[in-house]
Design a protein around this nucleic acid. Structure first.
Length: 577
DNA sequence: AGTTAACTAAACACTC
DNA sequence: GGAGTGTTTAGTTAAC
């Protein structure tokens, strides 16, 4: 809001990204935050009224007689209000400090990236008021549109490099609730370069994506008009741009940190993979998230775990051992059930991408079914179709685990291709290729999670702030007709905003879906509809379309490694049973 | 305890 | 005939 101590959506984003919070913590945090913001809004309104009253009285005094008493009274009131405002700032500062103490927010004194921290220290309410007006004046109308999304559009960069000002540190309080982080260059002429394209970063789904705006623009032209009229080069736009710059800066810093962290983790795991205490861990799984949470929050013994103390699931989200011990890493037993299929959630590129290096180098069996892996291999291909040999190659390329025992897993691949109706063999010019029938894939029996509300809630939250949603994941979710959780289901409006932001990000992917029963499934090769060589007899499952359940488990891919049985052929390992 | 799904293994047919 | 591919069956295991 008007003061910097309010947690901005950026800070919230940072918290969500950097600090893994439990849903309960988030709930409390957000509630506190909202209460503060509400208070500030009320104070702001009050302050405005006071000022208006003061000006009115001054005018009256100029025109009519003098009423020094009343003037004095108003001045006194304003002074009191200013004190109140300062008090509010202090409260917010305490709030932030409290968050820091709780480990929920990391604010380093020398860190310039937290945009609003130094703001308004020594700034008097009048200045704040002015800046506030500058930044927010144009938002009043926009708020009436029920604008409530929190786009995290950070794909553009701001070219503004003018000297920093106080304005640059002001965060629009409504932007705080909305959380828009879009960057827009104040240079109008830059728009002309984009006018030819309707994929303007500030325009999507018929609405203006300028922070705090979301005005409905029927077409691109009206959007451009709106952009030029409502978001012209002025102090407000510049200020918002500066804010966005800092946001981007912060996120880049965060990204760099996380990359570094990932690198360190990879290095650590590779180096120590032969050491007893190594705990190699795929990175895309909830368990890893919770692991990092516990590692950052609490006891240092959370990581690594020794093989002699098999790791219990850190959260109830995971149902199996959440940490791969060294033992399990080298003596991975047959995995009878893998979570990606267990909940009918197809493996996503996000999963593969995030763990790519891990699985490429570590001989760890990926916690996905053959069917999921085959499907992923096929969907990753440009033509959405692969020959058997190409599927083999994908397996060996992506997973060190599949560089051994070729006969076994290749047989399994062939077996799966033949067995599952979702894999369709298509005669191609260059021979036979395999494609995926998404409809059939979705028809595979989803298994239900026992109805533990807190568990589901936990998973939802985990999903909201832990799961990177890249296009493939979104597509996967969309393919499952997954309705993203609603604001209500999040139990918190701000989290709901996050969810809605994600939802909005997903809209593109969702549009072409939700029609599973039709023949328009994504990823389906046009060819397969032409030349299905045969029809596999897989019993149709009456229980279909359990989207919501699929959703909550999307964030829940968990390694499911057997520790007690060896999957390899080596007699040595077999002896270890 | 029964059912289901995933996995492994293997046999067999077919093509090149 | 051998290798690769594709289909099918059987047995085991784990989850539900």
């Amino acid at each position: 809001m008007m003061t910097p101590q309010v947690i901005t959506p950026q800070q919230m984003q940072q918290i969500l990204q950097q600090q893994v919070l439990s849903p309960q913590q988030l709930q409390v945090l957000l509630q506190q935050q909202q209460a503060l913001m509400l208070q500030q809004q009320q104070l702001q309104e009050f302050y405005k009224k006071q000022q208006e009253q003061l000006q009115l009285q001054l005018l009256q005094q100029q025109h009519a007689g003098k009423q020094p008493k009343e003037q004095q009274q108003v001045a006194t009131q304003q002074l009191a209000f200013q004190q109140q405002l300062l008090q509010m700032q202090q409260l917010q500062q305490q709030h932030l400090l409290s968050l820091q103490r709780q480990g929920l927010l990391t604010i380093q004194p020398g860190q310039p990236a937290l945009p609003l921290q130094p703001l308004a220290q020594g700034m008097i309410p009048a200045e704040l008021q002015q800046l506030w007006k500058e930044v927010t004046s144009a938002h009043t109308a926009e708020e009436t549109t029920g604008n409530n999304h929190s786009s995290l559009d950070l794909t553009t960069t701001c070219v503004s490099s003018s000297a920093p000002s106080k304005t640059s540190l002001i965060m629009n309080p409504h932007a705080s609730t909305n959380g828009q982080l879009s960057v827009h260059t104040p240079k109008r002429e830059s728009l002309s370069h984009e006018e030819h394209s309707h994929s303007h970063p500030l325009y999507g789904h018929g609405v203006c994506k300028w922070p705090g705006c979301e005005a409905v623009c029927e077409d691109f032209q009206s959007f451009l008009k709106h952009l030029n009229s409502e978001h012209a080069l002025d102090d407000r736009s510049t200020a918002q741009c500066r804010v966005q710059m800092q946001v981007v800066q912060q996120l880049e810093l965060q990204l760099a940190k996380d990359k570094e962290r990932l690198q360190a983790m990879m290095t650590h795991l590779h180096v120590k993979s032969t050491e007893p205490k190594a705990a190699p861990q795929p990175l895309n799984l909830v368990s890893s998230v919770t692991l990092s949470k516990s590692a950052s929050e609490a006891s240092p013994q959370s990581l690594p775990h020794t093989p002699t103390t098999p790791t219990a699931p850190i959260t109830p989200v995971t149902q199996g051992p959440s940490v791969i011990t060294t033992t399990s890493m080298h003596t991975v037993g047959p995995i009878r059930r893998r979570y990606s299929d267990k909940y009918n959630v197809p493996i996503s590129s996000a999963d593969i991408a995030q763990n790519q290096e891990f699985y490429k180098n570590a001989e760890v069996r990926p916690p996905f079914t053959y069917a999921s892996l085959i499907r992923q291999a096929i969907l990753e291909s440009p033509e959405k179709q692969l020959t058997l040999n190409e599927i083999y190659n994908w397996f060996t390329r992506m997973f060190a685990y599949f560089r051994r025992n070729a006969a076994t897993w290749k047989n399994a691949v062939r077996h799966n291709l033949s067995l599952h109706k979702c894999f369709v063999r298509v005669e191609n010019v260059k021979g036979a290729v395999w494609t995926v029938d998404e409809v059939e894939f979705q028809k595979r029996r989803p298994q239900k999670i026992s109805g533990n509300p807190s568990l589901i809630k936990n998973m939802q939250s985990s999903h909201a702030y832990c799961t990177p949603l890249n296009a493939a994941l979104q597509a996967s979710m969309a393919e499952n007709s997954i309705p993203l959780y609603t604001t209500a289901s999040m139990g918190n409006p701000t989290l709901g905003n996050l969810a809605s932001a994600i939802r909005e990000e997903l809209n593109g992917a969702m549009e072409h879906t939700n029609s599973n029963e039709s023949d328009s499934s994504p990823g389906r090769s046009p060819m397969q509809a032409v030349h299905p060589v045969h029809v596999k007899e897989e019993p149709l499952d009456p229980e279909e379309a359990e989207g919501p359940l699929s959703l909550v488990t999307t964030a829940n891919h968990s390694p499911d490694f057997d520790h007690d049985r060896d999957y390899e052929d080596e007699p040595v390992n077999e002896d270890m049973e």
